[in-house]
Structures are given as structure tokens and as C-alpha cells.
Design a protein around this nucleic acid. Structure first.
Length: 158
DNA sequence: GCCAACGTTGGC
DNA sequence: GCCAACGTTGGC
């Protein structure tokens, strides 16, 4: 028996990479590079497994919203943008021999017919404890409870 | 190891 | 553009 799947929320600014970009990507799959926060990294490196489910969130968008779902199709491996001097996420402390930053691959599952705006999620009882709705929440890779994931799907109409 | 200064995130 | 929240840095 395999470990039960886990649930996550990944934030992205649609101006840099949107769910529509993911839909256009080869095999609707992308590497989730550029994460430079230790807590987020640890979640990806230590917790994420192939088959885990992902809520795809647009931040700094109008409105900020959960816009669809994806799944993890490759577990954590080193993020090479960390050792690319020309990349905006370059980190000289990360090297190929001793990588500090990691990424996973995700594949699009579904784009919601209507984005679920952040404001519309507040007040939903099943989401009362959701990390995304916590004041000051900034984590770009967040764990989501199974009940929360299912409640979001329900709000999205299936 | 403390903590002030600073930088970033991201909703509003 | 504002600013609250939070992470990181670095002097001591």
C-alpha cells in the first residue's frame, strides 16, 4: 500500500506564470522552480510525493483566486535556477554538489470554470482554518487539509 | 543567541 | 501605493 496522497496549495503570480501558461505547456507540466523560502522548500523536498493534489492559486491578481487543480508528477529534485547567475532566483550558496533549493513537477488537472476569489472563500465554514485565509499568510507552498481540498472542489462545482 | 534593520510578500 | 506580516541578515 502506498502512502495516502497529500494536498497542497501553490501560489504564483499570473504575470510571471499562470494556470493558462500551464495549460499551454508541453504535457501540461511544469517544474515549480524559484521557491526560495525554507519552509516551502521543506514541504516540497520532504513531504510532496507523486500523486499529491495541488490547488493552483493566483496571487497579486485581480481578484486573487484559486483557479484550478494540478497534481505532483515528479518528486523533489534540485532547482538549477539557483546556480544560474543570470536567473533572478540565483543563490550563490546553492551548488550542483550541494543544492539548497528544490522543485517538483506538476501537471494541470483542471481549470475552474470560475476562479474562486479569495474574498469569496472567507466565511466558508469548511475553510475556516485554511492557511491561505490566515492573516498575513505568505507561504507560497502550503499544506491543505483533505476536507479543505474537497470543500474547494465542491465550491468549484465538482 | 538576541534583536534591530531591512527586504519581500501580497491583500487591499 | 500603502502597509502589516513575516523571513533574513548581521552587529554585538
Amino acid at each position: 500500500m502506498s502512502v495516502p496522497q497529500k494536498y497542497w496549495l501553490l501560489k504564483t503570480e499570473p504575470e510571471s506564470f499562470s494556470i493558462q501558461d500551464l495549460a499551454r505547456a508541453k504535457r501540461k507540466t511544469t517544474c515549480w522552480d524559484g521557491v526560495r523560502n525554507y519552509q516551502a522548500r521543506n514541504s516540497m523536498r520532504d513531504e510532496m510525493r507523486v500523486g499529491d493534489r495541488v490547488l493552483f492559486y493566483h496571487s497579486s491578481a485581480d481578484p486573487p483566486a484559486i483557479v484550478g487543480t494540478a497534481k505532483v508528477v515528479r518528486a523533489a529534485y534540485p532547482d538549477p535556477t539557483a546556480w544560474d547567475r543570470d536567473d533572478s532566483h540565483y543563490d550563490p550558496k546553492s551548488t550542483p554538489d550541494n543544492p539548497r533549493w528544490f522543485m517538483v513537477d506538476i501537471q494541470l488537472e483542471r481549470i475552474f470554470d470560475e476562479p474562486l476569489a479569495l474574498a469569496s472563500l472567507r466565511g466558508v465554514a469548511a475553510l475556516a482554518k485554511m492557511e491561505l485565509l490566515r492573516k498575513g499568510s505568505r507561504l507560497s507552498v502550503q499544506p491543505v487539509r483533505m476536507g479543505e481540498f474537497e470543500a474547494v472542489l465542491k465550491l468549484a462545482g465538482g
